[in-house]
Design a binder for these strands. Sequence first.
RNA 1: GCGAAAGUGGCGGAAUUGGCAGACGCGCUGGACUUAGAAUCCAGUUCUGGAAACAGAGUAGGGGUUCAAGUCCCCUCUUUCGCACCA
Length: 826
Amino acid sequence: MDYPFKSIEKKWQKIWEDKRIFYVSESSEKPKYYILSMFPYASGVLHMGHISNYSISDALVRYKIMNGYNVLQPMGYDAFGLPAENYAIENNSHPRITTENNAKIMDEQFKQVGFGYDWNRKISTCEPEYYKWNQWFFLKMYEKGLVYRKKSYVNWCPDCRTVLANEQVEDGKCWRCGTEVSQKEMEQWFIKITNYAEELLDQSQLQYWPERVKIMQKNWIGKSYGTEIFFKMVDSGERIDVFTTRADTIFGCTYIVLAPEHPLVHKLIQNNSYKGKIEKFIHRVINESKIVRSAEDNVKEGIFTGQYAINPVNNENVPIYIANYVLMEYGTGAIMAVPAHDQRDFEFAKKYNLPMKIVIQNKDRSLDLKTMTSAYVEEGVLVNSAQFDGMNNIKAIKSISEWMESEKIGKMTISYRLRDWGISRQRYWGTPIPIIRCPKCGDVPVPEKDLPVELPFNVEVGKTRQNPLKSVPEFVHTTCPKCGGYAERETDTMDTFFDSSWYYVRYADPHNHNMPFDSKKANYWVPVDQYIGGIEHATMHLLYVRFFHKFMRDLGMVNSDEPCIRLLTQGMVTKDGAKMSKSKGNVVDPQYIIDQYGADTVRVFMLFSSPPDKDKEWKDESVKGASRFLNRVWRLIDEQKDFLKSVHQDYDKNANISSELKKLRYSTHFTIKKVTEDIEERMQFNTAIAAIMQHLNNIQSYYIIDENDSTEIAIYKEAIEIIPYLLVPFAPHISEELWQMLGHKKILLETEWPKYEPEFLKTEEITYVIQINGKLRSKITVSADSDEDLVKEKALANYKIQKYITGKEIIKIIVVPNKLVNIVSK
RNA sequence: GCGAAAGUGGCGGAAUUGGCAGACGCGCUGGACUUAGAAUCCAGUUCUGGAAACAGAGUAGGGGUUCAAGUCCCCUCUUUCGCACCA
């Protein structure tokens, strides 16, 4: 009943493998093209999202190969990480064992779908051969001063028992397990990604990236221009710097606020008789989980320190508060409060009965503190601001800042929302951070020659609440590379985003034992020409990769500025309107579908259902539709293959043929054009497939008049043969098989992508739409060489049109060449 | 709150530069084949009226520009996503 997809798919997978179609090297005359899909987490099963993602890249790969490119498409596994460790704990196994098993299963599944990978380049991030270079890069960063260790409050997931980067906290919850994240003070390793903030903000080489991703990155980095203003404490004279973007309101400052984590806080409250009470407050706020503290409706709370500071612009004494709404991580961790012109300060001042001072007046209505119900944040003119009175407040930002700089009471600065990248994880299954802690010498980097610092295998995972590495003496106990004395190893492992930040270059030279990769090979393949992956990585992975690339460039290892030229963020696969997930119970196992309909059907369904960057709603019926289409193609060719095999393709192109036959030929060449442009220019596979379906319909509504007419048969054959050709990127197995059935020896992947003949897209007759006042009223067909006047004449003469225009005044007639005539009448 | 994207038949979607709205597919309706079902094939399928020809309405809603608007402009609504006390 169905075409024999099982045997065909196996057959062609073997042929591609035997012919080494997807195995590539740098020694090629052809131009290179590097297509990369984000590698999967080694979870042990391919889900529909993977199939969807990889079907897109595989279609492009085949298209590019046929267009004469040396195409690299590698595959590997993101193999380290928490879920693997947790999975192993649950199953009483070891993550190395479960991960290796998972990878094997996934290898098989990949092969079953027939994706064309260069398997020689497979990498797995949990191999010492790979993570050795993570450590190497870490040491290089250390050398360059990009690594530091700092005690800080970090996002702590109590369930995963590890630290999370800010990016890994979603709505105050752990991005992996959904547990509410709390704050914990810990020593952590950080990478100074902020050193590259300015460069990461430069998106000039990302013109082929989705706007959405670029905006998200820009917001994430969050650059703002502002001013640091130097307050002094009345008692000790110690400086407190505050950051503001609203220097224009400095004269309206009535108090200043420190974040509870601010380093000066302890000193400030030393002699306060309420010290205990204040400390209690600080303690409470700090331990409050982020979600509570940052919630929109969280009540602003604060406490007076008992101390005052001097506002440097007017020498006024202002009280110093500590409050929950000031963040240590942004700016200087201290703010000046201008309640009259900042909503947050306004709310706080109202609550604690603090004074307010208007320093910006509205031109039309005069503001009054007694009647104000919210802060005035609009434009206006400065008042109560000494020599700046009367100045427009926007202009005053600069003027006041410059003045403060010259008075040495402030300086203009730039502040970023982006924080440094905390890479420490307190778990076993990751790259050990190559640092040795010596009681004498402090933190000493592991010498390069001693890499890799191997992750010990014999570890009891999940037995203790602490990092299992801590309980492996062979790992922890070591000697200091500097002084030779007893020392202990760092037991933190790296965030797995470190692993995935440079894997795309490793693919260029995956077996290098001396270096992460050879620069020559890297520069041949990199940057990636087309990168494909999920939008969820917009501010995580995609920011880290860009950072890493620039770092590698600064080391002289790559000669480009960005890791990838084109980026496609594919949509997710949904069912019943929601993302497929176990908890929702709406998961469809690709394996089942492949068994039932074959890999080509699944691919066609995925690519046909919507454009690649849109979500794909899974519908069992639509899968049947994709299968039905492939079966129709199969039957058409299967029934006619013997007849067509005997037909000569060549024919006299100038021969006089029927208009029906011309239409068929037109359809063939039009479809080539359409499919080519849809792939090449728009990456829109759904319309490309629709065009092929349309062409199939056109063929099936054509009836051969004379089986002995060699011209007719040749054109008919051409129409049919183009189908496997154009279908091969989307349904590679069936297309190759059909092509062979039609008697061809060379496989499609070894032939060139077809070209359309512009001559055949010209038609002798053109149908014009005739509108009257913009409304469609009739259609006429004229010969293609008709000039505008003739078209007008015929349009007016049309009997349906006559009905509408008799007795009416024609004001003008618009003719759009080859398209329509619009008659404007009254 | 800020930023972004989107809103088109019963459904997924198409309409690429302002020029025939609904390509293609699903579903549905009727028919053919069949003892029957499945599969397949044929016809139809935006809505309203009509047997039909045809007419009218129609791309979230309202307004505007234009000979012509799904497409451009303004306002409103809804949905999704991102950020969110960032001073």
